[in-house]
Amino acid sequence: MKEALTGTQLQAVLNQALAYTDKGKVAAYIPELAKEDPGQLGVSVCFPDGTMLSAGNVDVRFTLQSISKIFSLIIALCQNGQKHVFERVGKEPTGDPFNSIIKLETIKSHKPLNPMINAGAIAVAGMIQGENIDDRLNRVLDMLRKMTGNPAICVNEAVYCSEKSTADRNRALAWFLKDSGILTTDVEETLDLYFRYCSIEVSVKDIAHMGMVLAADGIDVQTGERFFPEEVARICKTFMVTCGMYNASGEFAIDVGIPAKSGVAGGIMACVPHRMGIGVFGPSLDEKGNSVAGIKLLALLSKEWKLGIF
């Protein structure tokens, strides 16, 4: 399949999608993210043999934001098992915004609907085990460094501080979870961990590598090293399809048709099972928090290269 996909084709698709960078706005509610140039767009595609095709702003560093929710979930599942995790976080999509609090109050169990919304991800952060915050954070960082082959991956301290200082809604979610017995760890420590791994800085090449590991069911095809069990990869890819693009996940599944997870810094990590991992960056967001040009680029790629899994 790789022979059919060329850098020239990828550049042509990116050029078409560039016209959509002015259709949205950067995430101004986090001051550091508001500084991004909305006209940026980059894409990398990683194949099982390690080949990488890239076009656009591929060397720009940006933070994972909600893409990190996949990897905190992986750690939590590996440490605690499915039963423990899903007693505290549900498996259902939501039609509400990613930072909504309404379902927590109106659902009788007060359990977050899924791990891809903020409430669910905060609950998951409370399940990551370690001696202290640094140790718990390093569980995520170490895995990402190994998956990407990039030992320089780290937290962007400016974005972390910016998130922490503007996170009143997330604090409200966390304290509600604490009051409901869903979150049993210290609220401020759990939030601090959550802010830190949302602020991990990457490039599209990095998230294309991450996507390829998910596409290969948790292994590095090149080395044969397994990072997490196949069943954990299956669960995460299912969440990516049903919940990965916030409350636009159903539309994305129909229009693009591949597992994907977005973040409000403009990143999208996508994968086509056993075929490729894709990283996209475009900081101009739609009203639901997804990269406008990034979604258009993935839709064009999916149509041209017949990537849809359905």
Rank of each mutant, 00 (worst) to 15 (best):
S249E: 00
G7Q: 03
S72Y: 02
R275W: 11
S249N: 02
I235E: 12
R88K: 05
V264E: 06
V264Y: 09
I258F: 13
M269Q: 12
L191P: 00
D286T: 03
Y160W: 15
M147K: 03
G24F: 14
F47E: 13
D135N: 13
L298V: 06
Y194F: 14
E201Y: 09
L285R: 00
K35Y: 09
A119C: 10
I67C: 11
T242M: 08
L41M: 09
N132F: 14
N156F: 11
V89Q: 00
Q65Y: 12
R171K: 14
H209Y: 14
Q16Y: 12
S199C: 08
L177N: 00
D59I: 02
L297G: 10
G308P: 08
A167F: 14
V280K: 09
L301S: 11
D192Q: 08
R88E: 02
F62E: 07
E87Y: 01
S100H: 08
E230R: 14
L53N: 02
Q222L: 15
N99C: 12
P38T: 05
K205G: 15
I254S: 00
L141K: 02
I101T: 08
L77G: 02
A253M: 05
S68E: 05
G250N: 02
K261L: 12
L191S: 05
S44A: 15
D135K: 09
R171D: 10
P229R: 04
L141Y: 06
E105V: 07
S199P: 05
S72Q: 03
P31S: 07
I67E: 07
P93E: 05
E231K: 11
N57H: 08
D179H: 05
H274V: 12
E92L: 07
S291E: 09
T184F: 02
K35E: 10
Y194P: 03
P38H: 07
K35V: 04
A167W: 12
Q40V: 04
G90L: 04
T166E: 09
V159S: 04
V187K: 04
K164T: 10
I67R: 03
G267F: 14
E131P: 02
H209K: 15
F281W: 13
E189V: 04
Q9V: 02
A125K: 00
I153F: 08
D96G: 06
E157L: 10
I200F: 11
A27V: 03
A167H: 09
E231L: 12
P259L: 13
P38C: 06
A299I: 05
T94R: 01
A248G: 01
I128R: 01
F62Q: 02
C161H: 15
K25E: 13
G294E: 14
P259R: 05
E287Q: 08
R234K: 14
A19I: 10
V26T: 08
K103W: 10
T6E: 01
L193W: 07
S68K: 01
D186L: 04
T94G: 10
N114K: 00
A167I: 04
I133M: 13
I67D: 07
E157T: 06
S284I: 04
E287P: 01
D192W: 07
P273C: 12
S66N: 03
G56I: 04
E105Y: 15
R169E: 13
